[in-house]
């Protein structure tokens, strides 16, 4: 429980000294952030969970080589982004389309646990079926719109508008100039205007 108050830097140092609790704390802090990012990039929960685990496996293997030149979150997002690129290349070769399956707006809503039913993870705990269904439908439309963006633009808009990273952090994650991040974000949002037009006033 001591790990709860430690900074990321301290946790990494403890991990490098074989502190299992510190590693567990890092996984606990970042698993959902990384999963959400990867989910938005690949479009399905199964691949997203597999790739999220791979992120932490890679972190585990490369712990000793981490030198605090960037933040822990930047490092994890960078690993995740590279894995998404690799996954996209494999799926492109496999089916010449967007990697993985995209949530169908006409098909049944299947939860991550495999049950049928309109239940997704939502921030509002109020049990209102219509509201939940509307949220699920909106989320599906967002995912479809994101899937139509080029990968580099999708990365920037997901990291900024969904994950809340700043321009500088995104530039560090994707390893490109700040100006490039800004222009990709502008272009991504402009493209999303066209695909999400009917939902902009919701």
């Amino acid at each position: 429980m001591i790990c709860l108050s430690l900074s990321d830097t301290s946790l990494i140092e403890r991990c490098q000294r074989n502190d299992v609790a510190a590693f567990n704390e890092i996984v606990g802090r970042y698993k959902n952030k990384i999963y959400n990012y990867i989910y938005r990039m690949v479009g399905n929960s199964e691949d997203a969970e597999d790739l999220t685990q791979e992120v932490f496996v890679k972190m585990y293997v490369a712990l000793d080589s981490f030198r605090n030149q960037s933040s822990l979150s930047t490092w994890l997002y960078r690993i995740a982004g590279n894995l998404c690129i690799d996954a996209h290349r494999k799926s492109s070769r496999r089916d010449a389309g967007f990697g993985g399956s995209v949530t169908s707006l006409d098909g049944p809503v299947v939860t991550d646990s495999g049950d049928d039913g309109p239940s997704r993870d939502v921030a509002d705990n109020t049990f209102e079926p219509a509201k939940i269904l509307a949220q699920v439908e909106l989320d599906a439309h967002i995912q479809v719109a994101l899937s139509k963006l080029p990968e580099k633009m999708r990365t920037v808009v997901v990291l900024h508008d969904i994950e809340g990273l700043q321009y500088e952090e995104i530039a560090d994650v994707v390893d490109c100039p700040l100006g490039t991040v800004k222009s990709r974000l502008f272009n991504a949002r402009t493209s999303l205007r066209q695909h999400l037009g009917p939902y902009l006033n919701c």
Binding site: E49, R120, D121
Partner: peptide
């Protein structure tokens, strides 16, 4: 947008 989380 919804925040998706890992499985149990």
């Amino acid at each position: 947008a919804n925040r998706h989380e890992v499985s149990s």
